[in-house]
Amino acid sequence: MRVKIKNFTKKISLFYIILYLLCMLALFLLVIPILWIVFSEKPQTIFEILKIEKVQLAILTTFFTATITSIISIFFGVSLGYIFARKQFIGKNILITLVDLPLALPHSVAGIALLSVFGRYGLIGQIFPSEYGTIFTRSILGIIIAQLFVSAPILIQGARETFDLIDPDFEIFSHILGASSFTTFRKVVFPQARKSILASTILCWARAASEFGAVVFMAYYPLSAPVIVFDLYNSQGISAAKPVAVFIIIISTILFALARVGARIMMKEDR
């Protein structure tokens, strides 16, 4: 006798119909603008615009500053993240919230906040003599500070969560075996956290490179890539800004893909 088995998988429920519709809507919103802008632009136009020195410089500035920002963020993130994860002190939760706050702030607000500290008449800016008044506001340093303010919290948060997951007993044990705090951190704690820290660094780099709001307030000049797109759009319209935007998309995609491949190789090595 043949037993009839009900096939559950072939039946499409209403739940899945709604789920697929939502996915399609999300993908349309997230992917279409990027694909559309990339494929609607002629490669010739991109090469043409890239010949302009101002554009080349802005792109280089962005990659350079984002890389420096990420390196500094690693030190900030690892130090603060470790202390937040391991030490108990009064006001710790308030401090954690304050450190994470730039992630939730409108970027223009972040820019104004930075200007009030580093601007010519700001808390720190005013300490410097007037000939150095623009040391933070018209410089690479200004861009880095703005990028740091909005992107370092990603790394700090990521590192804190990672260190939180590492059993403190490993550290105690390493001390018992004879290791100092630094050796324990270098040999026991950091190697266990490095994959997550690398992942946070990639996100931090992306966040720093794409920062527009805070940078535009802090250091409009020297022009960085996001600012020059805005600058070209303002002065010459969308046709001038689009090729630069497309180039940034392409280069960011390549770098992102490379970073992910690197992270995957690291994970395989660990296995």
Partner: peptide, 20 residues
């Protein structure tokens, strides 16, 4: 004395081998 200067070996309840 700090932990790392005592030179006393320890075998904990849960074997704490460094996972990496």
């Amino acid at each position: 004395f700090p932990l790392n200067k005592r030179q006393i070996a320890y075998v904990p309840q849960k074997p704490t081998l460094f996972p990496h």
